[in-house]
Simulated assay, not measured.
Amino acid sequence: MSSPEQVLAVLRAQLRAANITYRQLAERIDMSESSVKRMFGQKDMTLTRLAQICKAAGIPMEDVLRLAADATPHADTLTLAQEKSLMANPRLLLVAICCLGHWTLDQIIETYSMSEPECIGLLVELDRLGLIELKPGNRYTMRVSNAFRWIADGPVQQYVREHVVGDYFGGRFDGNGEMLMCLPARLSSASAQELQQKIQQLAGELARLHQGDRKLASAEREGMTLLLGFRSWEFAAFTALRRK
């Protein structure tokens, strides 16, 4: 859950972006400028007052709350125990991945053979595990960051290697926006580390685009998966041809 301080920081930034001063805001909500400054300075504001300010400034309150939640520090990974709990129940893992894609409850049960009570129960379990924070109306916010990744060589990554990679690379990669590249190179340790940083930047860019497209209708978005690997490797059939 985002803190009141974070909510007010986002609100202040939104007011600046809209070029609304404390004096202008005070006039719109019938308060003195000093009272408005004190309210922001003391970081003390009721939900009713927040709604009033957002309405007066023409700023959607839901946008302020969402941006505040997104800016709140979250974990980049789960614990080993959390991943093991996901792997113990395939349906729980499915709903967890849907949540990472910000699917709604309705979207999940419309897409997969799962009843509403069952799906709600799985959301409750994900809340207990700390992956999401379940809210009234079966809505939720994520408790992991946009840069979330599975534990290296953890239960989920092991499952991906054994069951997912073959299925993923079995596609033709000729659809709209799809591509497959395999680029060999001989690099120094420093160059390899530089490339790792750029891969992390790419992951951050994917998270940014994913976050920005959440405002679009579901029909305007398509599930896409970026599967990256980078390591010292030679195809075994080629290794067998090396000179003894």
Rank of each mutant, 00 (worst) to 15 (best):
R66D: 14
N146S: 14
Q201R: 00
I53H: 00
E27V: 11
F230Y: 15
D127W: 08
Q211K: 11
K84Y: 02
I132Q: 06
V95N: 05
A185G: 11
G175I: 03
L8C: 03
Q157D: 13
R139N: 10
G170P: 07
R208H: 04
T104S: 12
L47Y: 03
A237L: 13
R23W: 07
E118S: 14
L134S: 06
S191W: 07
D44T: 04
P136R: 07
Q157E: 12
L180Y: 05
A219P: 05
R12V: 03
R139E: 11
R139G: 10
S35F: 08
G171W: 04
L209P: 06
N19W: 02
L206M: 10
D76W: 06
K37Q: 07
Q211N: 09
R186T: 10
A147V: 03
N146W: 08
A71M: 08
D167W: 02
T239P: 03
V160N: 15
L227K: 04
Y168S: 10
L122Y: 02
V124I: 13
L187G: 10
E33W: 03
A203Y: 06
G121D: 09
N89S: 14
V95D: 04
M31D: 12
T72P: 00
R242N: 06
G170A: 00
S32F: 09
Y159G: 09
R28M: 12
N176Y: 03
L105G: 06
S35T: 02
A240M: 08
L94Y: 10
M31K: 01
P4S: 07
R208V: 02
Q24H: 06
V156F: 11
R172Q: 12
Q211S: 15
H102E: 14
S3I: 02
M61G: 02
L227V: 13
A240C: 07
R23S: 12
A71Q: 07
F238Y: 00
A51C: 01
A13F: 03
L180G: 05
L134T: 12
Q52L: 13
S2R: 11
L100D: 14
D70G: 08
S232N: 11
T225V: 14
G175W: 09
Y140F: 10
K84Q: 15
